[in-house]
């Protein structure tokens, strides 16, 4: 009784997971500072390493971190990848660059986008700077920083990446 139709060869089987994400104390402070246009980390009282995003504890020493450090908008490329594959739902058009960046004043990298650059010229040790959204759009979100863009400064030698103070100079032990 049914009209002739093509046989079924596939189904849509989406999975949607609904979470209530609670940031915790240290990440809440980090996000609150982001809303004010500041990038912050936390310094370990034991080893002096500065972590971003802060988690409230030093993974190396296993002790609580409380001292909050305002980090620079300048950062160094620690590593990067050029993404050529389009991902459904991603508003960013490939090819684009995802990089591990160490902001001046921190000792650990986080992941963000690099843009306003020639993809083929991006390299490890390159200096970059955060491009923030207009202040009116700031929220409790990392994407207040739209992306990082190249900075006209000398490269950082590989052995010094992750060892610069907030002023961009090497921290003397």
């Amino acid at each position: 009784m049914s009209e002739a139709r093509e046989p079924v060869t596939g189904i849509e089987a989406p999975v949607y997971l609904q979470y209530q994400f609670t940031a915790g104390r240290a990440p809440s402070r980090f996000l609150s500072a982001l809303k004010q246009g500041r990038l912050t980390g936390q310094r370990c009282p034991g080893c002096s390493q500065v972590y971003i995003p802060p988690r409230g504890a030093c993974p190396a020493c296993g002790i609580a971190t409380e001292e909050e450090v305002t980090l620079s908008n300048k950062a160094t490329v620690q590593s990067f990848t050029i993404v050529y594959i389009p991902i459904p739902g991603n508003p960013i058009k490939p090819p684009y660059i995802v990089a591990n960046l160490v902001p001046d004043g921190a000792n650990i990298s986080f992941i963000h986008l690099l843009s306003e650059c020639v993809n083929e010229e991006v390299h490890i040790g390159q200096r970059v700077q955060a491009v923030w959204k207009p202040e009116a759009e700031w929220d409790y979100k990392m994407d207040n920083i739209i992306y990082y863009k190249p900075l006209d400064e000398p490269d950082v030698p590989v052995e010094l990446i992750g060892k610069l103070g907030v002023d961009g100079r090497e921290v003397q032990p």
């Binding site: 596939g10 949607y16 940031a23 990440p27 809440s28």
Partner: peptide, 20 residues
């Protein structure tokens, strides 16, 4: 300083299709 702990709804979606 005491900080309000932030919390919000978050949805993770996997838009799978399956060959039958």
């Amino acid at each position: 300083s005491p900080t309000e702990v932030l919390s919000e709804a978050f949805e993770l979606g996997f838009t799978y299709t399956r060959s039958t």
